[in-house]
Nucleic acid binder design. Structure first.
Lengths: 335, 335
DNA sequence: CGCCTATGAGAAACCGATTTCCCAGCAAGA
DNA sequence: TCTTGCTGGGAAATCGGTTTCTCATAGGCG
């Protein structure tokens, strides 16, 4: 069979089914009135010809491009790619595609990317980043289409999605407790980060106000340094909850170098479930997974609802985290 | 100023400039014939009204959607996000946007994503992955638009882009030599990987056939294991080129645990310039950067050329790698 | 048996641009 | 003065669908 030189159009289907294009359109969209026989005939013709409607044409008249934009400034893709994957998975069955761009931190580039997206008549926008408490260099005030913020800061009256840092931290801390660890410490990132504050707050709520909380940066080096401080005056804690997998890795490495057995003497929990770090740590990290893919899916669901005109209450929605049990704590996952 | 309820259309511009839409269109596109005065008048009207053409409408009549699709199966985004970023940066100034999706390894999902992209009339496709010698679960044989493969396997007669593994490996090995390291070894990934074979081949070409090449997996654990093997019979090499930053990190850690000073006694070079690993290693890794962003840009350039109908010779294009000097080798970057 | 209504289907306008003619008007040449 | 030849600009078709009307027909009812 020769390859079709041009795509099958609705008029081809209409001709094959011996109806007008108007009827064909209505038949395939389930609108209008006609006998079941006619509708079936059109559907079969469409099927036989392998008809796929031209989304451009459809968009032009229906004023719906079936496209949403995803804007990120997370150049490493660590947070963004799972979100994007969930987003497009949630939307593909509605025929919706995702236009994506990375705007780094340059407002001009951001503006250009945004404008080309708006020219393409995207039905909605999802904005995502690498930090929940700072905004992208992007002025969305004039934008009239729905916007959902995921994992980044938006205006107060915006629809925002994020992981439930406090719940995740609670999960981790309780897990340490359930393993019989009674002297807990928390090693996390800079206090300026909302994520760090939320996690620290939840840690304190579970572990008690006496349990030490050490703020530093998000690096492995800080994990080393924190262990040095915790063990400076004799015995350290027997359970350490870390604000990120990188810190946790630094902590575990430092403990090993110090001759402290993990998980024999000390249990360590991380945060992020960043495979590449968590799996390479010896022993592999028990850690909190933020469910980024799920955040992407939910962002898709929400942006679609907004596009459909459904009312969505503004505010921050926190999606629950999940504990992933590996070797750094001892214990086995609860059934 | 009240927010515009509806976008400015070409007809609005035409009315403001007191010409027909046909003339307005020609004026703004630099086509047709008219006095400079008329053209300027239209341009000023467009400027004043903030006119931005509706890309849908333009696409419908010009048969160009100004959109390209990016398909990946790299769920972690480690390779893909830089490529996507370069791609969209290369195209945004032409008004071209990138439709992106992640198809994992599921042919059905791949098919659905591809179909919705084709329905959107993408002008071209860029396919990228996490491995240069395996193909995505995607049948592109019926696709009539241009396709560029980046960092993944395509058909033999396709336009394919990839990093120049051999050149990068040569760079690394020569760097070790230039630092006076004479007993070199190469620790890399599985021999099934073309990337591993290419790098190993280049290493052997520079270091000589006697220099040991150890294949394992791409993990830190393998780095440890390899060091154990290399030092099993007395003194090991004084320079180690690793096939990935993860392996290099394992090697460096193992050397430290063994009391071997890096870079004092042994120099280590990695491959990937994966910030998060390279920077966290103690000392930070000197490593080979594959220029993924540049691969993305070049993919953009090529796909655009193909869309414009320019002839592009099929075959594999290898883009040069770059050595990033940090602390794991000693030495300072060449001026 | 005739009028009224419900029903199935098509004609045509429309979405917002691009592009192909076509025409009016003016200057130059006969 | 009358043609010829450009020129600037506009009318209208087109891209491929959606949607609103309109209309012919058939059946129900009095």
């Amino acid at each position: 069979m020769a390859s079709a030189p041009t795509r099958v159009r609705l008029s081809d289907v209409a001709a094959a089914a011996e109806v007008s294009v108007a009827t064909a359109s209505k038949a395939l969209n389930g609108t209008g009135r006609m006998t079941d026989e006619t509708r079936d005939r059109v559907r079969q013709a469409a099927e036989a010809l392998g008809f796929r409607p031209n989304a451009m044409a459809r968009a032009l008249s229906s004023q719906r491009s079936l496209t949403v934009g995803l804007i990120t400034n997370d150049s490493y893709g660590r947070f963004t790619l799972p979100v994007m994957s969930g987003l497009s998975a949630a939307l593909v069955d509605e025929g919706i595609s995702v236009l994506m761009c990375n705007v780094e931190d340059d407002p001009d580039s951001a503006r250009r990317h945004l404008d080309t997206m708006l020219d393409k008549q995207v039905d909605g926008l999802v904005v995502t980043g690498r930090r929940i408490d700072t905004a992208l260099p992007l002025d969305l005030s004039g934008v009239t289409i729905p916007v959902v913020y995921a994992f980044t800061k938006g205006p107060d009256d915006a629809v925002t999605l994020t992981a439930d840092d406090a719940q995740g931290a609670g999960l981790a801390t309780e897990w340490l407790g359930s393993l019989g660890r009674g002297r807990l410490a928390h090693v996390t990132g800079p206090e300026e980060f909302a994520a760090a504050r939320l996690r620290a707050g939840a840690f304190a709520a579970v572990a008690g106000p006496g349990a030490p909380v050490l703020h530093g940066d998000w690096s492995e080096a800080w994990g080393h340094e924190a262990v040095a401080r915790l063990w400076a005056a004799g015995d350290g804690p027997d359970g350490i909850f870390c604000g990120s997998d990188q810190i946790a890795r630094g902590v575990v490495d430092a403990l090993r170098e110090r001759g402290v057995d993990v998980p024999g003497q000390v249990s360590v929990v991380g945060f992020d479930n960043w495979q590449i770090v968590a799996a390479a740590t010896r022993p592999p990290l028990t850690t909190v997974d933020m469910g980024l893919n799920g955040i992407g899916r939910e962002a898709g669901r929400l942006v679609r609802a907004l596009v459909e005109g459904e009312a969505v209450a503004p505010g921050v929605r926190r999606l629950p985290c999940r504990l992933v049990v590996r070797g750094s704590c001892g214990g086995t996952p609860p059934a």
